[in-house]
């Protein structure tokens, strides 16, 4: 190896370390509200293991998708995305383990299974945060940044999923969601669903006009945006909520209508998260 090659190799490693620092920052930002929520650690300890497994199994493809669309190189192969996803998972896992340890929430009195559960559940938001921050690995100029933000329609949906998850994940484990859902009358539920959709549409529509959605052909009719972004976005928000609440075991003792109510309540932050995905993400 020549001296210059060695030097550039060192440069690459240095760039990666800086990227790791950034990813840890992203992980902390995304997971702190959840890391400091008691219901969340409790969930990690008590959740059905099969469902936790499902949650992790769904997390990996989401991380791969995020790495793909946030990644600043458009030509990356799926292997690269998979590598980035694993890096994000490792960083998310390490960040939540260290933070929980710092908080004194990992004690020798706890069983391994309880500790692992708590770390794994916190890894979900943490690794998403890491993946998003990781998209800015290495140096990049403005042009790269532009490219990374323009992931096309599918990229948009992946962002929406991440945004929905981001805002609703910290609310989902709390009891307040149940309480709100219980307080609501049918009319409230319908109104909240309409408001969620309207808010989502307003944000999506205004972002389109501010030129952030460069890939969208100029002057696409309003109904098309509504159908392809707003309705699909709201569906994504509800699906995210459904998967989350099911894995958390929150539907277990509920009837169908109570379930729908809960979904709509949680769907509100999820829809807002999906709408602002571009700004958050």
């Amino acid at each position: 190896m020549t001296a210059s090659k060695a030097a550039s190799a060192r440069e690459i490693e240095r760039g990666f370390l800086i990227g790791i620092g950034r990813a840890v920052g992203g992980a902390v930002v995304f997971s702190l509200p959840v890391l400091m929520t008691m219901e969340m650690w409790q969930l990690g300890a008590t959740m059905d293991r099969e469902r936790l497994l499902v949650l992790v199994a769904l997390l990996i493809p989401l991380l791969v998708g995020l790495s793909h669309f946030v990644g600043f190189e458009e030509t990356t192969s799926w292997l690269d995305d998979l590598r980035d996803a694993f890096v994000a998972f490792a960083i998310g896992f390490a960040t939540s383990a260290v933070t929980l340890g710092l908080f004194g929430l990992i004690e020798p009195m706890m069983s391994f299974d309880e500790i692992l559960g708590a770390i794994v559940i916190e890894t979900v938001p943490a690794s998403i945060g890491a993946a998003l921050a990781q998209g800015q690995f290495g140096q990049q100029d403005k042009e790269d940044r532009q490219a990374s933000r323009d992931g096309g329609y599918w990229g948009e949906l992946v962002f929406m999923t991440a945004g929905a998850l981001f805002l609703s994940f910290s609310v989902a484990p709390t009891e307040e969601v149940d309480l709100i859902a219980a307080e609501m009358r049918p009319l409230h539920v319908i109104a909240l669903a309409i408001v969620s959709i309207a808010a989502l549409h307003v944000v999506v529509y205004s972002l389109q006009f501010s030129g952030q959605e460069a890939h969208e052909p100029e002057g696409a009719p309003g109904w098309s945006v509504f159908a392809r972004y707003t309705l699909v976005g709201y569906s994504i928000a509800l699906i995210v909520c459904f998967v989350m609440m099911w894995t958390f075991g929150r539907f277990d003792e509920l009837g169908f209508t109570a379930m729908v109510r809960l979904l709509v309540v949680l769907g509100f932050p999820a829809a807002i998260g999906a709408a602002f995905a571009r700004l958050i993400v």
Partner: peptide, 17 residues
């Protein structure tokens, strides 16, 4: 954009992940 160079360390972390 230049193709991103991947260092050994990154692969190590990815393997860890």
């Amino acid at each position: 954009p230049p193709p991103r160079q991947v260092g050994r360390l990154e692969w190590v972390v990815a393997a860890l992940g």
